[in-house]
Design a binder for these strands. Structure first.
Lengths: 339, 339
DNA sequence: CTGAAAGCGCTTACAG
DNA sequence: CTGAAAGCGCTTACAG
């Protein structure tokens, strides 16, 4: 394979200057049709492809977007990453991916590495212990799903969405509810819990009171399974009739605990999640949850990043309640009577 | 924020030439300790960071590895991507990620995009319909898990691993077995099926014969669920006593089908998967499967890519059998007597 | 509208 | 061992 052709080769072939070649390439400046045609002819004759690196050096701008996620193995983040990649591609950009393993140090060093490569901008789904520190960066940085530093955040309106779950459970008659929260040091964890709790407490004022128990956990399967097991190991009359979890993974862990303890879902216990990962629709029973619009979130994050006026405003998009078969009417009263 | 310092600034500050700065940066050439010290002093005083783009333009070499996967949302590929990212990082490289959505066209265009960015090399987990086409590339390309074109492949020894499953099931007494295969147009699908079938047929020669039924499918949940349902909808005496699936996702789909039909696993039916995705250990019952050593696979792929002498040999690493509770002794005979 | 030329920030023969 | 200089492949004022 011979050397790749350069603008110079194209210019010679077309009988014009390299400046002209560059100008038809950019398409931004007017070039006489005749020359333009010659240049385009030369480009395809030679199979010319612009050297992205040289262009980047000259303009100190690339079309690469850096994405940092805590753990690509987490199904929701994987979905988010897939959506970001698609959104970036739609705008002619490529994606560099890094995993922080939920470690703040790794996160920071990935940011520097991206900056060294002069990416176009960085989207970060923050690690859970991400500080509020603001760092100066020569390119835009956007927080996605979880806030990074003080950078603008694109996320689901967690509180409002959690309220949807509260409504659903209350509407089904549940009055003894446990909430498995996310880590309190994550904004998402706090928002979801806050939204749920406020809504439930609101019912107490205008309707029947609800006994609400809250346990903080991590967002993963194990945490959900462990906490649910503790909750369900109690005598039936002390058990919650519904468990709302802050993530699908927790909820699926809870489902597993219920099954191990032979507690029928949804007959004896309702369980809800949050995220609508693809697995939510595959577990038994299928999980009632909140769908986070990953595509929309990703598209907004990319759009904000590419926007000229680096906006500094957060952006919230609404999640939607997906009712499946892990929730049902509360039958606790009957059980008590029978027992 | 002022402009980033360059080698020139460092050289001036240290009172040396830019060549010398570059030489201490590279560390490859001997530089007098005194000068080296001065330069290093200047570097930290100025907070100098080399411009990766300029370096790439000059050397036409970067430290970016391109990875193409069919679908990052697939848990096994996510695991693979995480491992590749880690392995790349260990070697001081960054990762660019692209999804082919199992589309050959997209795959090819991602390869070109990576080439345009003059990545150091490309690792591709091929789409299922990847052709045998060999393309000339100025950088090494390695196939991971599924072969891309004619490029060397790093993968689990699928056939041998599938044999492990066959041994396990046969040892448990199963003599009527169904195999849910992967797409026959994937090498992994064919190897796994081949390894399983050969092993089972071998038993027929030296021991009791096995009734083996094979159904081709895709690697996903839905495919497994659908095929298993068809298999299990038959009257009990015509049903297989064990279903071996070519992927965990298929197996989890099969588990779901069994549960819907109230067929007890593993009492009435054994189910096995392949991959050991994290979910395999969380479903009910926990899935017996083959662990693919994602870390090792990734590390080998990266090592091969970075190797000087572009090796052209395939590399197989052994998978291991993980026995959990979705498999058990065959009790078919008893069932028949009872019925 | 177009060409000639400078320069982005490095690395690396080439002399010495 | 070190410096001066060329050049990687582009883009973009600057003239005309």
């Amino acid at each position: 394979m011979s050397k790749m052709p350069t603008v110079k080769d194209v210019a010679e072939y077309a009988g014009v200057s390299v400046g002209t070649v560059s100008r038809v390439l950019s398409g931004e400046v007017a070039v006489k049709p005749l020359l333009r045609e010659k240049v385009n002819g030369a480009i395809s004759a030679l199979g010319y492809r612009p050297n992205v690196t040289a262009r980047a050096l000259r303009t100190s701008r690339t079309d690469v977007i850096g994405l940092i996620v805590p753990d690509i193995t987490n199904p929701f983040f994987a979905q988010l990453a897939a959506s970001v990649e698609r959104a970036a591609l739609e705008c002619g950009h490529s994606l560099m991916l890094a995993s922080s393993h939920d470690d703040r140090g790794a996160e920071r060093s990935h940011v520097s590495a991206f900056l060294d490569r002069s990416v176009r901008g960085i989207i970060v789904v923050a690690s859970s212990d991400s500080s509020g520190l603001h760092l100066e960066a020569p390119v835009p940085i956007i927080s996605l799903d979880r806030r990074f530093g003080t950078f603008p955040l694109v996320s689901t309106h967690h509180a409002r969405a959690a309220g949807l779950i509260a409504d659903h459970l209350y509407g089904l008659g549940h009055r003894r509810i446990a909430y498995i929260a996310g880590p309190p040091d994550t904004e998402a964890g706090r928002m979801r819990k806050g939204g749920f709790v406020n809504r439930i407490n609101g019912f107490g004022k205008i309707g029947e009171p609800v006994e609400l128990e809250i346990v903080d956990g991590k967002f993963d399967y194990e945490s959900g399974e462990r906490i649910a097991r503790d909750l369900l190991l109690r005598p039936p009359q002390d058990r919650p009739t519904a468990i709302a979890a802050a993530s699908d993974q927790q909820a699926i862990g809870a489902l597993r605990a219920a099954r191990d303890l032979k507690i029928d879902v949804p007959r004896k216990l309702s369980v809800t999640g949050f995220d609508d990962i693809s697995l939510a629709n595959l577990v038994v029973p299928r999980l009632t949850t909140i769908r986070q619009p990953a595509d929309k979130l990703a598209r907004r994050a990319v759009a904000l990043l590419l926007e000229e006026s680096s906006s500094t405003r957060d952006e919230m998009v609404d999640g939607s309640l997906i009712i499946r078969s892990s929730t049902g009417p509360c039958v606790r009263a009957k059980v008590n009577i029978a027992g």
